[in-house]
Every structure is written in structure tokens, then in C-alpha cells.
Design a protein around this nucleic acid. Structure first.
Lengths: 347, 347
DNA sequence: GCCATTGACGCAAACGTTTGCGCTTTAGGG
DNA sequence: CCCTAAAGCGCAAACGTTTGCGTCAATGGC
């Protein structure tokens, strides 16, 4: 390993001079000739600074962590995480940072010890935490160390980035109403299970009230995160309420499950029943029919969150970010046709 | 920050004694009383060793990197990466290692500078590299540093882990032949584009020869990695060869695209035509019909690769690993029915 | 009772940087 | 010609550990 001492020796200057010329961006005054000597020696020897030593004295590692809690042993969930992760990595790399990935095991209110070690290790300059699930244990573990932190999602924290799920819910409902549907089923999640889902529901409710609809009266069936639960829900809803002409699913996976179930039951989508999802998963492009859904700009999350973290690391106060979701109209929703609409009105 | 010096002072011992008692697992002999004093002082003060300092002297950071090259700006591809990553992370964490994620930009034979910095930084004890795409530039950049490395896939390297894609190809073809199909279309990738795909094709070819079929005569259409290209391929194949009763796709995405296209053309799957994919992507469980495909045990890759890396870090020579893939029969393939079979034989 | 051995611990160097401060030289002003 | 200031550079401490070696006392054998 070639150290700065070697460079200094070859350039016949002191170590401190070499260090200042090589790393100190604040150009202290050095003779042109000296600078050249050092620079040349550096490249000739192929000198690369040892970040560990640098970190020890500066206290800065230029490493940040992305934390995706691992709940019930399920890995950080699916492609959404990957998109975010990819964005963080890219932005990190552009700014000379390195990304450490951590998926701490959270069980019975405790975080695994390796995560605690990581926090105390001094390896991290800051972190970005996904609060898709309950991260209270993580945040309490984190409090002891004064590490700059950005939170993704609804966990209460001064610096956060989230999508406006209320607005997303509104878009969902408005789209369905504009298509003249009035008999609308809801495949939701149990209240309180996910802050994001709750917000989506609140958006739906708000639109209902604006249109004089009784939100509480909407046929509703609670699923989970699996596509199978979407299928179950669709079957149950249609059996209890054959008059339904539209189904709102709170995420794409249950929407896709619902579509599959409907088709298996001989129901055409969107011919007889419109289905709308939420998340804009990649596979919704290619599903049959392509799914109308809500896009959360996931690919922007990583860079934006990392940008917030960087301003925090520079000692400034980043503004929280709330991203507006967008409706993506594909082919799983269609206007209620005249015949059915009239029938609907008769009831 | 509470340092080991504080602990030593509170226990009224020297720093070296504290260090040895706290970290040196090779229990040098110390008086019972001294050990207790130090341990107690340590917990009372909440001492956590600074890994950076420890790394500086020991030369070991207990950080390893997972490298997923970013080609043409596409992020590390999809869920396969995520499954592997999740496995690596879990195994890292269990063994007290930390995982750094790097997705270096590779363009025109060069790797971005941040990746080079990472390699030279001294931050890494070792790395696991995904060779899904061409990683020559990465490997040459890596050669200058003597970092223990495991390669995932077919890139030539002493320590590798891969799935037996030749066997996978065999399974693919055997399954189709056992279902009595004889008019088989191939949605492949251009030769040489992917070592894994080439291997799959070689397996298919081998089975053909064993059954006296002319591999070269199989109707074939080359796609890419997108599901759209699968749709295009299916349409083209069926138009040129209406007699086909089975389609082999070299990956699930193009298989799903093909299924969608077939259904749009009024072809039932598997009623009129069987389709088989490769990869066992999660969405193939829920597609309509659920796809018959090949599973590569991706969730085992991470732990196995990490295990190899750990033995390498301990100074031993790990054995390369070749995992056998498994056929997953779902509902997109079915035996050729009698009528069609007889017709098939007549031609 | 003396010497060698062993057990228990401390001293200080080392890892590769950064950085506060001080030293020398030169230039410039009076 | 002297004094001051600035320019250019080096010394050495510091960051928090680990670890080779040395020291001291106690112990045991003869």
C-alpha cells in the first residue's frame, strides 16, 4: 500500500505539505513548483488515500446507511425498495458517498445487535430509514447516537420524505367517479395497519363526501399485501354485491389478484367491472389488461432523500418533501356504459 | 463519545489491559477481579468500540461489498438482485459483517471513479460481484487491489457461484418433450449476449440430440429482456409457424409477454399452446395462468456466496458452488391432447 | 536462600491521515 | 539598513484502537 508518506518522500516535501496539497481543497498557498512535484509523485506512485485513516481523524466516513427493516423475516419488500435503493445509490455515488445497506431484524420491540453495533461503530455519517413498517424500536435505538437521519414515510420525524397518499386516494376515487361508476367496492387494509393505506382511505372518503356519497356504506373487504388476498376479496365482494361495477384496490398486488379472480369467474375487466390499483408496479404495465393505477414517483425518492441527507450533513435544515402522486390511466378502467348506468340509476 | 481510555481510567487499569480484556477473544490471563472491573466499567459507561480506529490498526473493517453493475443506466435488475442482496445482508449480519452496496456505472470499458475510490479506500475486506452482465472493466479495476472476491455467474474466476443453466435448459426441454410436444418454438436471446442464456440453449440442444431432434431446425426468435420483446416474438413465431404447440422462453419476462400476446390473439394457454419460462419470478405465481418455469434457488445465493467469502477471509480456499435448478410445474404447460398429437404426427 | 519461571499487567509504538502552530525565508516599506 | 508582514513549508500532536515487548512481583525448585 502506498501511503502519503511515500508520496511526500518522493516529492521531497513533508507529509503535511503533501496532505494539504492533495486533499485540502481550500488551496493554501503553495509554490506552483511544489504542487506539481507532489501531484506528480502522487500519480506516479498511484497513491490513493486511505479512507479509514482519514475517517479516524476527520470523524467523517462518507458512508451513509439505507435501512430497510426486516419484519417477520420478510425481506425489505419487493421492487419499491429496489427502486428507492437504486436511486439512493446513484445519488450517493455521484456525490462521493458510499452506501451501506442494513436490514435489521425487528422482533418484539428489539433490534438485532449487529444493527446496534453499526450505529455505534462510527462507520456512519447519516442514514435513511424506510418506515414502511413500524420502526419505533429502530428509532429508539438510534436516539442515543446523534446521527443525521431522513425518514421515508409516515413515521413522525422532523426530516421526512413521503408521497401524498391522501391525494393519491382522492385521485383514485375521482377517476372512478368521473367514469360514472357509483357501485364501487373497496379492497382495503385494516385501519391502522399502514399509515399510507389509512391516508389513501382518507382521500377516498374526502372525495365521497364532496360528492354526497356515504363512504361508510361502500362495500369493503380487507386484504393484506398478497395478491391472493386480493383474489379472495374480489370473490367475496362480488358475491355479496353483484351490482358492483368498479373495484378500488389499495395496492397493485391485491388489484392484480382481484383481476385474476374476476377473469376466472368469467367477468371481463374492464368490460363488466373496472379495477384500479395503487403503486404502479412494473408488472402492471404488462398485466392483462394493463392496470390503471397511481404512480408515486418512486424513482425520485432515492435522490431526493439523499439530497435531504446531504444538506443535513452540511449542517443545514432540509425541508420535508411530500411528493404528489399521479394517476396512470391504462386499460383496466373504463366509463360505465349507458345501459348499465341507467340501470344503476334505477336502483 | 466514550473511548477505551475512559473505560481504562474508570477501571483504573491501563488502556492495553482494557483493550485485551474487552476485545481479545484469546483470553490472555487476567485476574478475575481485573476482568470484572473492566467489564463493569465498560457497561456502566456504555462503551462501544470505534470500528474505524480498530480498522485502522487491524486492517480489517468487517465490511464487504455487494457489487451489481449498472449497465446502460439500468439499475441492478429487478427482484433477482433483491433476493440475492437480501440473502447476503442476512448472512452478513449474522456474522457481524456489514454490507456495502455498490452499483458502479460501467460505460465504454470504464468504471466510474467513485467505485475505484471505494476499492482503494481500505473500507472493504472483500466483495461479491454479480456478473449478470459484462464485468471485465470491473475485474480489471479490481486486480490492482488484492481483495478477496466471489463472483456470481459465469465470469471466469476461481471462486464463483452459479446456477447450472445447462441443466436448467435440459429440464425445460425434457418437460416439454414429456408432454409430447414436438412443434416447439424458441424465444431466445442472441448467442453470446448472456453466458447463462447460452448455457440454457446448450442444455436444450443436448436434449434435442438425445431425442433425435434437429435443434437447429427449431423455430427461433430472439428477444431481449423485456416482456414486450416476448410478445413480439410470440406473434412472429406463430405467424410463421402456426403448427407450434409449445413455446420455450429463456426467461420469465419474455414468457409473460408471450402469454399476453397469445391471449390477445385469441390463443388459449395452455389449451392451444403451452408456454414455459425461466427464473421463477414472483409475479409468475400470480400470472394468468400461473407460469411453469425453472427455479434457480435465488434465495440461497446470498448466504452461500457470503459463506464462500467468509472462508476466503479466513484464509481458506472455498469450493466453487454450482446450484442445480428445479422445474416448477404450474399451469401454463399441459400435455399435447390426443387429437392435436395425431395431427402433429401426420405432418 | 537463590535463581529461573510464570502470571499479570503497563509502556509505547504503530496504523495513515489531518491540522494547529511555529519556523524560516523573502519582500517590501520606511 | 531595520523591522514587519506575508508566503511557504515542516513539526508534532491527535483520532481510538491493537499489540510487541518489557517490567514487576510472586512462586516454585533446588
Amino acid at each position: 500500500m502506498v501511503t502519503i508518506r511515500d508520496v511526500a518522500k518522493r516529492a521531497s516535501v513533508s507529509v503535511s505539505t503533501a496532505s494539504r496539497i492533495l486533499s485540502n481543497s481550500t488551496k493554501e498557498k503553495f509554490a506552483e513548483a511544489t504542487q506539481l512535484k507532489v501531484l506528480r509523485a502522487s500519480v506516479e506512485l498511484g497513491y490513493r488515500p486511505n479512507f479509514v485513516a482519514r475517517a479516524l481523524v476527520s470523524g467523517k466516513t462518507r458512508i451513509v446507511a439505507a435501512v430497510f427493516p426486516r419484519i417477520y423475516d420478510t425481506p425489505f419488500t419487493a421492487l419499491a425498495s429496489l427502486q428507492i435503493l437504486s436511486g439512493i445509490e446513484a445519488y450517493c455515488s455521484e456525490n462521493g458517498y458510499h452506501l451501506l445497506l442494513s436490514a435489521p431484524q425487528v422482533s418484539s420491540g428489539k433490534v438485532d445487535s449487529n444493527f446496534n453495533n453499526l450505529l455505534a461503530s462510527g462507520y456512519l455519517d447519516g442514514l435513511i430509514i424506510d418506515s414502511h413498517f413500524d420502526i419505533d424500536p429502530i428509532m429508539t435505538a438510534l436516539r442515543r447516537f446523534k446521527l443525521p437521519t431522513i425518514v421515508l414515510g409516515y413515521h413522525p420525524h422532523p426530516y421526512y420524505l413521503r408521497s401524498d397518499n391522501h391525494l393519491g386516494g382522492r385521485l383514485l376515487m375521482q377517476h372512478i367517479l368521473e367514469l360514472h361508476h357509483r357501485h364501487i367496492g373497496l379492497i382495503a387494509l385494516p385501519d391502522g395497519m399502514s399509515a399510507a393505506a389509512d391516508q389513501r382511505l382518507s382521500g377516498i372518503k374526502a372525495v365521497c363526501e364532496e360528492h354526497g356519497l356515504d363512504y361508510a356504506a361502500l362495500p369493503r373487504f380487507n386484504g393484506t399485501f398478497s395478491s391472493q388476498s386480493g383474489a379472495t376479496a374480489a370473490a367475496a365482494l362480488l358475491e355479496a354485491h353483484p351490482e358492483l361495477t368498479a373495484l378500488i384496490a389499495l395496492n397493485d398486488r391485491i388489484a392484480l389478484g382481484a383481476v385474476r379472480q374476476l377473469q376466472a369467474m368469467g367477468c371481463t375487466v374492464p368490460g363488466q367491472i373496472s379495477v384500479i390499483g395503487y403503486d404502479d408496479l412494473p408488472q402492471t404495465h404488462d398485466s392483462n389488461p394493463p392496470l390503471t393505477t397511481i404512480n408515486q414517483q418512486l424513482s425520485n425518492w432515492g435522490p431526493l432523500a439523499m439530497n435531504m441527507l446531504l444538506t443535513l450533513l452540511e449542517g443545514c435544515e432540509p425541508e420535508p418533501v411530500i411528493l404528489p402522486p399521479r394517476l396512470v390511466v391504462r386499460q383496466s378502467t373504463t366509463p360505465l356504459n349507458e345501459f348499465v348506468r341507467r340501470e344503476g340509476h334505477q336502483r
